[in-house]
Amino acid sequence: MADKFISIEGIAKRYPGAGGATTTIFENLWLSMARGEFCCVIGHSGCGKTTVLNILAGLDAPSEGAVIVDGQAISGTSLDRAVIFQSHALLPWRTVLGNVAYAVSSKWRSWDRAKVRAHAQKFIDLVGLSGAEHKRPSELSGGMKQRVGIARALSITPKMMLMDEPFSALDALTRGTLQDEVRRICLETGQTAFMITHDVDEAIYLADKIFLMTNGPGAVLAEVVENPLPRDRGRTDLHRHPLYYALRNHIIDFLVTRSKTFTTEKPDHDPRNVPTVQIGKPGLSIASDAKPEAPRETSWPGLSRPSTSS
């Protein structure tokens, strides 16, 4: 990919372990994202997903390597990179408006109160929280709190959004609605998004590219899976797409078995040139194991459903 808006170049994270030994969470990790791309990272707990996100955010520094955003190596946090925290991280002593306004006034320090409020209000309206501006976070439901977190992140008009399992603490219904909204907002504003998730369906619905990470410690980025689903996919008919199950099975197979065995099975894995998997294009795919994905999908009953019913 020619356009590398974000490029993670050979980063490593090591922690001093017991008895002078060091624990390597991951090392020599390379990945890149194009402008406006929505990327999801999937991997088991402990593979360093959150560490990668924190390094991208600037909250954590890599032990080695560098992160380049828009042609510049990052050092520390930036208002260009907004973070949506898993636990929403709202300031409980501030109202909804106060929380968003805090971010707005941090970005534009010379703005007066009225201007800050008006700008914050715009983003509260955007996430559908009009009328709840003066409520405190304790008076909001989990989904509403996360909406405030999204409004706060968007209000500073960042170049990219970093999301650490933003919907994992929500019930399925709320999660679905918020996924729709995040997808809509990201498409409308052309956000570049980096999201950690454990939910395979969430990744398939939201992501353009899915990064699969092996188990830690010593985790590596095993594959980059390109989402074959069209960009204007909808939540309700997602599973009717002929490549949906192939994609889903590929990811689940990885999580269930290959994430454990990948490093031993592929000793020649080059972390600088991670294979890109293009499901549905067998000629182009560089699937890491010999199992071809495309022929197998014909045997799935789900595949014939759209053609017979419609």
């Binding site: 909250l59 946090t77 930036s78 208002l79 925290f85 991280a89 300031l91 805090y102 971010a103 941090s106």
Partner: peptide, 20 residues
Amino acid sequence: EWINVARTLEVGTVRRAFTV
């Protein structure tokens, strides 16, 4: 996480001390 919010918003040390 509250400190991290202030950090991602590039809030300076003094303002962070008073606002967070």
